[in-house]
């Protein structure tokens, strides 16, 4: 059972940041998807719901997704649907159901650094960056490596390029967490290959990316890139699958995502 002693609705980001830094044990509320799991006592909760962080906006060279944008909005908003072939939208579409996706936020998924996250894998493939208030911009990749914390995530920034991207995953049942997920992208001759839920966090596979840059994307190179990904990455066991199984399906997911990109190119 969740107990919250005090909830603060900061009027602006500065106040929010001062609160989170000033009150030990204070918790920033995202979509609250995991908040009710287990028994938790929070002395001070900081709610960002009234700061207007629920917008998706386009600038000259980026699409910016507010931290409080829900996964459902990522799935349906014209800007995110149109971004990189809708890879973000596709990455969230099997997360439980529309009602949950209308509650939980992209900022919550990202800030929590959940290793099983589908949208994190997709965001990694489009070079997403994160804007933290009072601190500035950090790449999603750096953030996942554990840099920075206890700050206020404002938005997720995706640079606009000629992205062609795809997302693939294997699940034991359609709305389950992924046994393994994969996102790839191509912009010009630049490639991203990302594999997540290994079951540890999503990683870019530079060996595969470099191989593709050098050899171009073909049916054959897609297969080889998949093999490289499986060779480069570590896979572990969890109740959804063994490391051995993950290693075996990794090349398939990478290959299939790349072939999708090839088809779309």
């Amino acid at each position: 059972m969740l107990e919250i002693e005090n909830i603060i609705f900061p009027a602006n980001l500065g106040e929010a940041l001062a609160t989170v830094r000033g009150i030990p044990g204070s918790v920033v509320l995202g979509g609250c998807g995991y908040l009710r799991l287990g028994s938790r006592k929070i002395r001070t909760a900081i709610d960002l719901a009234r700061l207007g962080l629920d917008k998706i906006v386009e600038t000259a060279d980026t699409v910016e997704i507010g931290a409080m944008v829900t996964l459902r909005d990522v799935e349906t908003d014209a800007l995110t649907v149109g971004l990189a072939g809708g890879v973000l939208a596709k990455s969230v579409e099997n997360i439980v159901g529309v009602q949950l996706r209308k509650c939980v936020t992209l900022g919550g998924s990202v800030a929590g650094r959940y290793p099983f996250s589908d949208p994190i894998t997709a965001l990694m493939a489009v070079d997403a960056e994160l804007l933290f208030h009072g601190r500035g911009v950090i790449s999603l990749q750096d953030y996942l490596e554990g840099k920075w914390g206890r700050d206020i995530l404002v938005k997720i920034i995706v640079p606009k390029r000629q992205w062609i991207a795809a997302f693939t995953s294997v699940r034991k049942s359609v709305t389950d967490y992924a046994v393994l997920n994969c996102a790839v992208s191509k912009s010009g001759q630049d490639y991203r290959v990302v594999v997540g839920s290994r079951p540890s966090r999503a990683l870019r596979v530079t060996t595969a990316e470099n191989f593709l840059r050098e050899n171009g994307l073909t049916k054959k190179s897609a297969v080889r890139a998949g093999e490289l990904a499986a060779e480069s990455l570590q896979f572990g066991d969890n109740p959804r699958g063994s490391g051995e199984y993950r290693k075996k399906i990794c090349p398939v997911l990478v290959k299939r995502a790349l072939l999708e990109v090839l088809d779309a190119a």
Partner: peptide, 15 residues
Amino acid sequence: LDGAPVLSCTTLTAR
């Protein structure tokens, strides 16, 4: 919630 389906079990009353 404001016309869109949400899970009331995951929506904090305080909000």
